[in-house]
Design a protein around this nucleic acid. Sequence first.
DNA 1: AGAGTCATGTAGCAACCGCTACATATACGG
DNA 2: CCGTATATGTAGCGGTTGCTACATGACTCT
Lengths: 177, 177
Amino acid sequence: MSKETLLPKLAAHVLEHGLGGASLRPLAKAAQTSDRMLLYHFGNKETLIRELLAYIAGVYSAALDMALRDTRPLTRQECFDRVLAQGKQPMMQPFMVLWWEIVAGSARGLPGYAEAAEEMITKQLDWLQSQMPEDDPDPAGGARYLLTLLEGTLMLGVIGHADTAREGLLASNMAED
Amino acid sequence: MSKETLLPKLAAHVLEHGLGGASLRPLAKAAQTSDRMLLYHFGNKETLIRELLAYIAGVYSAALDMALRDTRPLTRQECFDRVLAQGKQPMMQPFMVLWWEIVAGSARGLPGYAEAAEEMITKQLDWLQSQMPEDDPDPAGGARYLLTLLEGTLMLGVIGHADTAREGLLASNMAED
DNA sequence: AGAGTCATGTAGCAACCGCTACATATACGG
DNA sequence: CCGTATATGTAGCGGTTGCTACATGACTCT
């Protein structure tokens, strides 16, 4: 069994159980191998995690690409609502939970985390920019503004303050209701 | 040595080394005790972490209170800039790094994390609201909006995308330059 | 003074951690 | 057919994990 066949199973395990407590033997069992073989393929745990994070970032990118709509939104607000709804889809939930773990690891300087965060947020920004209204006066700046607002909203949602974010967006005429 | 004298030292250790890898023996050494005594006082590790998070949330609140300015800002932009500058202070850095770990733990449902996140973000919102311009037409909604934008900005900053956030704020006339 | 409660040290347990040494099976090129 | 590279299993090492059993000092109440 090669790296390429291992990585999807490892990613599935990490998406379900998180990165923090991930240790070799459970990872190996999830991938139907042994810790011995994981180290044989990846050398050590650090590079395993590094390659796994890179792989997961790639999967995330692909998922975003698949979610591209054919119709462009007409307003920034509609654009924001769409991408927020996208982030709230059940399919995206494991990515969301893992995302904050990647952010935390990046903040603490864990190896490989910053690179994965960079790739994922860049992809998200590209995707958001491609979803901006066609007649937007400043798609690049607007996408960055919406991304900032979006990530703040997602974070507040994840700690149970979704209401706070919604009220804030309402006050700025950015919410859906 | 009682809980009350232990908690500050435990908090210092966790602020420096993070929550994820925190185990009893290093924690005990940092607090000049033994793992045996930590369990004697707290019962088990889970409630230790829970009480430690509650304590840290309290310390964070106190730090925010100390940072209150006597002069109110004149605009929302000035308000935002102030609180962002506050978050970037070196004194606040360990809290910032720990904050994302708390968010991640909250997202994954770890015990005690959601409560700490709730307390810290509520405090931040209160503080932000108290710092809103006096003549603001909607201080409550505005504070919530600024909080959302602020947290998005801080997150992007922590993963090395501070530029992205700044350009986004520029495009929304919220940046300082 | 004796009894009991609180605080603390010592020692250890079973499980898990990342990782390695060693043997072996299989496959392929000479 | 033989040697060599690749892939895999078994066993184990030294260290860490959360937690517990047991003893013992110190102090307090009667």
